[in-house]
C-alpha cells in the first residue's frame, strides 16, 4: 500500500515537473523575439555553445565512423554484400546515430555548461540582481542560451555525419580495401535528402530544444549552493539522456 502511494506521489511529482517545464518553455518563447534585439548576446552564446562543442563532435564523429566501417565491413563481407556498406553507413548515421550520439555528447558538453553557468549565476545572486535592475533574467540569460543550443545541435549533427562518413571511408576503403566508387555510389544512390538527411536533422532540432530546456530549467531552479548546482548539473545529463532516447523512439515511430 505504501509502495503504491509512493509510486502515485512520484508520478504526480513527475507530471507536476513536466507542467513546470512546459510553462518555463512558454516563458522563454514569449521573451525570445524581444531578446533578439540584443543580437550580440545570441552570437556570443552560439559561439560558446555551438563552436566550442565542435571538438568533441568532430573527434567522436570520426571514431564512430571508423568503427562503423570496420563492423559493417566484417558483417557484410560474410554475405558478400560489402557493396552495401556505403548505404548502410549513411542511413544509420543520418537517421539515428548522428542525431542521438551528437545530442548525448552535446548534453554532456554544452548542457552541463548551461546548467552550471545559470546555477552559479543564481547562487551568486546575479539572477536576483538582474531582477532588481528590472531586467528579466529569462530574456537576458536563458533565452540566448536556449536559442543557441537549438540552432547549434542540428548543425553539429550534420558535422558529426560528415566526419563519421569520412571515418568509415577511412577504415572500409583505405584500410580494408572496399572499392572507393562502390562506397560513394551506393551512398548517393540510396540516400534521400528529405526522408533520411533532413529527418535526422529534424530529430536533432527536437533534441536541441530538449537539451536546452532541461539544462536551462535545471540551472535556473538549482538550489543556490555549490551542492545544489552540482546536483542540477548531474540531473541535466541524466534527464537529457532519457528525454533524447525516449523522444527518439517516438519520432522514429512517427517518421516510419
Amino acid at each position: 500500500m505504501t509502495a503504491l502511494k509512493d509510486l502515485f506521489s512520484s508520478l504526480l511529482d513527475f507530471i507536476q515537473r513536466l507542467g513546470a517545464m512546459g510553462s518555463f518553455l512558454m516563458r522563454i518563447l514569449r521573451v525570445l523575439p524581444g531578446s533578439l534585439r540584443r543580437f550580440d548576446m545570441h552570437l556570443r552564446q552560439l559561439w560558446f555553445i555551438g563552436a566550442m562543442s565542435l571538438t568533441i563532435i568532430i573527434i567522436s564523429g570520426l571514431f564512430v565512423g571508423l568503427v562503423l566501417g570496420l563492423q559493417f565491413y566484417s558483417a557484410l563481407n560474410q554475405f558478400g554484400a560489402s557493396g552495401a556498406l556505403g548505404t548502410l553507413t549513411a542511413l544509420s548515421l543520418y537517421r539515428e546515430l548522428s542525431p542521438v550520439v551528437a545530442a548525448l555528447l552535446f548534453s554532456g558538453r554544452a548542457g552541463t555548461a548551461i546548467t552550471a553557468e545559470i546555477g552559479l549565476m543564481r547562487s551568486t545572486q546575479q539572477i536576483e540582481a538582474m531582477e532588481m535592475m528590472a531586467v528579466d533574467p529569462i530574456r537576458h540569460v536563458v533565452a540566448p542560451r536556449f536559442l543557441a543550443a537549438t540552432i547549434a545541435l542540428p548543425l553539429l549533427c550534420v558535422v558529426f555525419s560528415a566526419l563519421a562518413i569520412m571515418g568509415a571511408h577511412w577504415s572500409a576503403v583505405l584500410w580494408l580495401g572496399l572499392d572507393n566508387g562502390t562506397y560513394w555510389s551506393s551512398m548517393v544512390g540510396s540516400v534521400d535528402l528529405v526522408d533520411d538527411l533532413l529527418a535526422g536533422v529534424f530529430k536533432a532540432l527536437v533534441f536541441g530544444v530538449l537539451v536546452a530546456l532541461i539544462a536551462a530549467y535545471q540551472g535556473y531552479h538549482a538550489k543556490p549552493t555549490g551542492e545544489g548546482v552540482a546536483y542540477a548539473t548531474t540531473r541535466t545529463v541524466i534527464h537529457s539522456a532519457i528525454a533524447i532516447l525516449a523522444f527518439d523512439f517516438v519520432l522514429t515511430a512517427f517518421m516510419m
Binding site: 549565476m121 546575479q126 532588481m132
Partner: peptide, 16 residues
Amino acid sequence: LRRRMGMLFQHGALLT
C-alpha cells in the same frame, strides 16, 4: 517600480 529602487547585495552580485 524596481527601476526606482536600488539594492546592494551581500556579496555585490556583479555580473561576472
